[in-house]
Write a protein that binds this DNA or RNA. Structure first.
Lengths: 240, 240
DNA sequence: TGTTCTAACTTAACGCCGTGTAGTAAATGT
DNA sequence: ACATTTACTACACGGCGTTAAGTTAGAACA
C-alpha cells in the first residue's frame, strides 16, 4: 500500500512535516528552545498555528521529534569522529569522542540544552521512544570505547562488584554487540559518560564562565586523566 | 535610616517579599519551574499578579532571587555534611560532599534544575549577581577539599601547566582563602566539580533511568575512583 | 467528464501567561 | 488635620497552546 510509490499527497505531507521541524530548529537556533512556538512556526511558513496539529498531536510531540533528530545528529557526529581514529588507538578514540562532544555542544548549545536540559515542562521520555534509541547508541558507543580498554582498565578497578541488575534493554543490546563483556564494563561506560557530560554541561550552561577562561584546557586535562585512569598511557599500544 | 529599627512598613514589606518566594518555591516543588507564575503566586496569596511588581521588577528577577536562595541552601547543606567529617579525613570529606550533593539533588530535583538547568529563557547570570556568590562558595569549598589532598594529588598530575589565566575574581577570592595554593589546584577543583555534576545531572534529568537501576552505586564508584585519583586511599592518613 | 469525498487549512474562540497604566484606599509623616 | 507615599486592584494588550466549526482544493470514483 503505497510503500513503494508514495502518492503525491503523502509526499507533500512528509515534506511539510519536515519543513515544520526545520523551521522549528531555526527558531531554536536563535532564541533558544522557548522560541519554538507553534504560532511562530506557522507565521514563518505562511500558515496558521492550528494547521500544525494536522502533523503533530501537540507542541510536546513536535519537540520530542526534534529531540530525537538532534540527538541522532549528535551521536552521528561523535561516532564519525571516533571512527576517524585507528581502532587500535583506544586513548585517541576516547579523546576524539570526548572533544567532539564538547565541540558539538559549544556549536549547538541550544541543541545540547534540548537533549540534556528541561525538554518540556512535564516531559517524560517515552519508555520506548525514538530518543531512547539515540541514548542507547551513545551508551553503546561509549561501551565500545571502554571495551577496547577493558583489559587494562579492569586491573585498576577495585572489587569486582556484580553489577547484574542493569536495565534489561541495555544489557541485552550491549551484550549482543559486545558478547563476553561484563556488566561492570557498562557501568564504567556510564561513568565515562558522566565524566564527559559534567564539564560540558557546566560550560554550556555558563557555570564555568566566572571561574576560568580556558574551559577547553580544563576539559582536555580531564579527558587525559580519564584515559590514564583506564590504563591507556598517551600513545596507542604498539604491537608487542 | 531605619537600619537599627526597621519600621513596621519595612517589616511587612520584607515579610511579603519572603512569602512570595516561599509560595513560588511551593509551586515549583509541584509542577516544576514552569509552574512559577506570577498569577498563580498571587492567586495563592489572595492578591493580583500586578501587586508582585511592587516587590520584584519582573518574573525573571523573582526567579533569580529563588536561584540564589536555593543555591545557597545547597551549598549550606554540602558544607555541613563536609564539616561533619574530621578535617584529617580528606577522602571522607570529599565523599560526604559528593554524596550529599547527589542526595540533595534527588530530594530537590526542581531546585537542581533551577540552579543548573535553563533558569529563564533569555537568562544570563548577572556578572556580580548574588547567585555567583553561591557558585564561588561551592568552588571554594571544592578547592578546600582539593587543597587537603594537594600534596598527594600533585604527584599524579602530569605536566605542571601554568594555569595563570583564571578569572581574577575567583583567583583572588580563593588565593585569599588558600594562600600558596597554585592555580592548578583550582583547575583540579573545577574538574572535581564537573565529575560530581555529570552523573548527578544525568540522573536528575532521567538519562540514566533506561540504563541502570542503581545509579547510586554507579556514583559511589565514581567518587571512590575520584578520591583514588587524588592519591587518597580509602582511610584517612594516620598520623605519621 | 461530473460528482463525491476527504484531507489541508482558516477562522474564531477559550483560558492561560507576563506586563504595563490608571485609579483607590489606607497607612505614614508633619 | 492634611499631604504624601505606599500597597494594591482593575483593566487592557499581545502572545501562547489548544480546540471546534467551517471552507476549499485536490484525489477518487462513476
Amino acid at each position: 500500500m503505497g510503500v513503494s510509490t508514495p502518492s503525491r499527497r503523502e509526499r507533500l505531507r512528509a515534506e511539510t512535516a519536515a519543513e515544520i521541524k526545520t523551521v522549528a530548529l531555526g527558531l531554536m537556533a536563535e532564541g533558544g528552545p522557548d522560541a519554538i512556538t507553534l504560532r511562530a512556526i506557522a507565521r514563518e511558513m505562511g500558515m496558521t498555528a492550528g494547521a500544525i496539529y494536522g502533523y503533530y498531536e501537540t507542541r510536546d510531540t513536535l519537540v520530542s521529534a526534534l529531540i530525537t533528530d538532534v540527538y541522532t545528529s549528535l551521536v552521528d557526529t561523535v561516532e564519525a569522529a571516533r571512527d576517524a581514529v585507528p581502532a587500535d588507538d583506544a586513548a585517541g578514540r576516547i579523546l576524539a569522542w570526548g572533544q567532539t562532544l564538547r565541540e558539538w555542544a559549544l556549536a549547538n548549545p541550544e541543541g545540547f540544552r534540548l537533549i540534556y536540559g528541561d525538554p518540556v515542562p512535564g516531559y517524560q521520555a517515552p519508555e520506548g521512544g525514538a530518543a531512547a534509541e539515540a541514548a542507547h547508541r551513545a551508551c553503546a558507543g561509549l561501551t565500545g570505547l571502554v571495551a577496547a580498554a577493558w583489559p587494562q582498565a579492569v586491573a585498576r578497578q577495585p572489587g569486582g562488584y556484580d553489577w547484574t541488575d542493569f536495565d534489561p534493554i541495555l544489557t541485552g543490546l550491549v551484550r549482543a554487540e559486545f558478547p563476553g563483556l561484563p556488566p561492570a564494563a557498562v557501568a564504567l561506560a556510564l561513568r565515562v559518560w558522566g565524566r564527559m557530560h559534567g564539564l560540558v554541561a557546566l560550560e554550556v550552561y555558563g557555570h564555568l564562565r566566572g571561574q576560568t577562561k580556558d574551559a577547553g584546557r580544563l576539559y582536555l586535562d580531564e579527558l587525559r586523566d580519564l584515559t590514564r585512569s583506564l590504563g591507556l598511557e598517551g600513545r596507542p599500544a604498539a604491537p608487542a
